[in-house]
Nucleic acid binder design. Structure first.
Lengths: 164, 164
DNA sequence: CTATAATGCCTGCCTAAGCAGTCATTGCCG
DNA sequence: CGGCAATGACTGCTTAGGCAGGCATTATAG
């Protein structure tokens, strides 16, 4: 039986965790994309490049699971990055279904140049926060995410497929 | 000079506050919309109805400022709600530019029936959290939002116009 | 070994969001 | 009073996301 954090009678949309998270997400995204300015890169695109760079995802399917993004949309996003010579596709000879992604030289340089900008933006956004507050916020969010992944099983496809 | 919460050399996309917030937002949205099921209503639409109900916004422009949404998209969203007889438009005679929004009888009932569902979903999502943890998360997010609104001036149009 | 399912990538279609520009109305200032 | 900026609602265009289906390839079951 769930705790009564919110009650229907007294519910205020603007006080709910949903509104607060949504607004935080949106503002932060704008903040970062604003600092991207004329780099010609979406936050989304940069995140994809980062994941490939760090080996967190090497295929389109990986990226979709990690970022919880549509596979069709991801294909088209990769198309753009490939066209700009930031990323390369290479068919895996062992499993010819999969296409492995890797950054080009200029892709790597590009990603790293934006890391500086992103960390700057994040640090500025968190300027008023102590180190402990940031840690706290991170751990609360992680806990929240963990809980939600239980509730929305589709969301954690990696886990779901392992369970089978 | 901003604190060094994140540093370019050691930056990990998945540990950043951006990733965590984005993922929280997405999962929570899915969680709620999943519980909306066959109600034939987007979370976005419901939020709009709630804002009108509570007098937080009575015009399209208000809604756009509050929810930080595109005015064209909002017009079309209202079109749908009006077509379904959930909301009404009425031209303000004092200022004939503005169109005031209000809920119909069935609109009110509809919103309130969904409040129950939303609060349930939120309580379930926060089941593992103590009351203090929820308060803490809310206050951290509010602080974060406040900071971001300073940084992205367009974001807080209400404030911005007041400043002029 | 074969039939069937599952996986991965991609395409087409539809809807929604973002952007720019239009039109009407109002506020402001000389 | 007259001109000009500002505001509010709306419309067309472009782009991105979600969904369903298709094709090739691999895994699995009998």
């Amino acid at each position: 039986m769930p705790k009564q954090h919110y009650r229907p009678e007294s519910f205020q949309a603007r006080d709910s965790i949903g509104y607060l998270i949504k607004r935080s997400q949106r503002l932060l995204q704008e903040c970062i994309e604003h600092s991207f300015e004329n780099k010609g890169c979406t936050l989304q695109q940069w995140v994809v490049l980062m994941h490939v760079r760090d080996g967190l995802a090497i295929t389109v399917a990986d990226l979709c699971r990690e970022l919880h993004h549509d596979s069709g949309a991801m294909t088209r996003l990769i198309d753009q990055l490939e066209e700009r010579k930031l990323i390369e596709r290479r068919r895996n000879p062992q499993d010819r279904r999969v296409i492995e992604l890797s950054l080009t030289k200029s892709g790597q340089e590009f990603v790293e140049s934006l890391i500086v900008i992103v960390t700057e933006a994040l640090n500025t956004a968190l300027e008023d926060f102590s180190r402990d507050e940031v840690k706290l916020m991170q751990s609360l969010l992680r806990k929240f995410i963990g809980r939600l992944e239980q509730l929305v099983p589709d969301a954690a496809l990696t886990v779901a497929t392992e369970q089978k």
